[in-house]
């Protein structure tokens, strides 16, 4: 089985690398197989076995799906509510009855919007604003002061940029939003650099797999 897995991995790896030449049937084959397998994996192993089974089935039918002490617990019947809401979602498969899924969508939207308003303010908005409020004049610490200026100017300039209701023109608004764009470019660049590093390490891993596990050359 291990040998079969290594050979399959090597063939799929080579099929994927063939895209460097050009778009070709081998790459398309690997790409479609990957999408099919990952959709199947998320469907069965993640959605069913990791979410639905422990959170719904094991609680609704503990004797059949529960393990350990859980199997002896009483069924939590209130979980029928999300089950019904989930099943209503499947009505989208029919064109005439698709409107039935609106109750589920409305429930999910209500929950997420209600939570968003309070949680995102509490967990993201306030901490981010706090992060941008730093002392601008530090006695004797010129580099730290300069860095804090950079941070504050950057935060304000980027926020100016994100205000799309008005055209980014004029000596003040235009200039500040342009500075915001520069900051955004630096930030995207940093993210891009980190991504490329990650991809290169993945690439090294693939070559290691081909040369070490498959061909046993190193």
């Amino acid at each position: 089985m291990l040998t079969l897995s290594i050979w399959m991995g090597a063939i799929i790896t080579l099929c994927c690398f063939s895209f460097l030449f050009k778009d070709n049937p081998f790459y398309r084959f690997a790409e479609h197989l990957f999408v099919g397998v990952s959709a199947g994996y998320y469907f069965s192993a993640i959605s069913f076995h990791q979410v639905l089974k422990p959170n719904l089935l094991a609680k609704l039918f503990p004797a059949s799906f529960g393990s350990g002490q859980e199997a002896l617990a009483a069924p939590e019947l209130w979980l029928i509510v999300p089950t019904i809401l989930g099943i209503l979602m499947l009505f989208r498969l029919s064109q005439e009855l698709a409107w039935v899924s609106r109750f589920t969508v409305a429930f999910v939207m209500g929950v997420t919007t209600g939570l968003t308003i309070v949680l995102s303010t509490h967990q993201f908005l306030i901490p981010q604003i706090k992060k941008a409020i730093v002392p601008l004049f530090l006695k004797g610490q010129y580099i730290a002061s300069f860095s804090n200026w950079v941070l504050v100017i950057g935060s304000i300039a980027c926020l100016f940029y994100f205000f799309f209701s008005t055209e980014h023109r004029g000596p003040i608004y235009g200039t500040v939003s342009r500075v915001g764009i520069w900051y955004l470019m630096i930030s995207f660049g940093a993210a891009f650099g980190a991504t490329v590093m990650g991809r290169i390490s993945l690439l090294i891993g693939r070559f290691q797999f081909l040369l070490q596990d498959w061909l046993k050359l190193i």
Binding site: L125, I129, A132, G154, C158, F162, G180, Y183, I186, S187
Partner: peptide, 12 residues
């Protein structure tokens, strides 16, 4: 500094 400033602004 610069990258963190932009990320804060994006999040805000």
């Amino acid at each position: 500094y610069p990258s963190s400033a932009a990320q804060s602004a994006i999040l805000i």
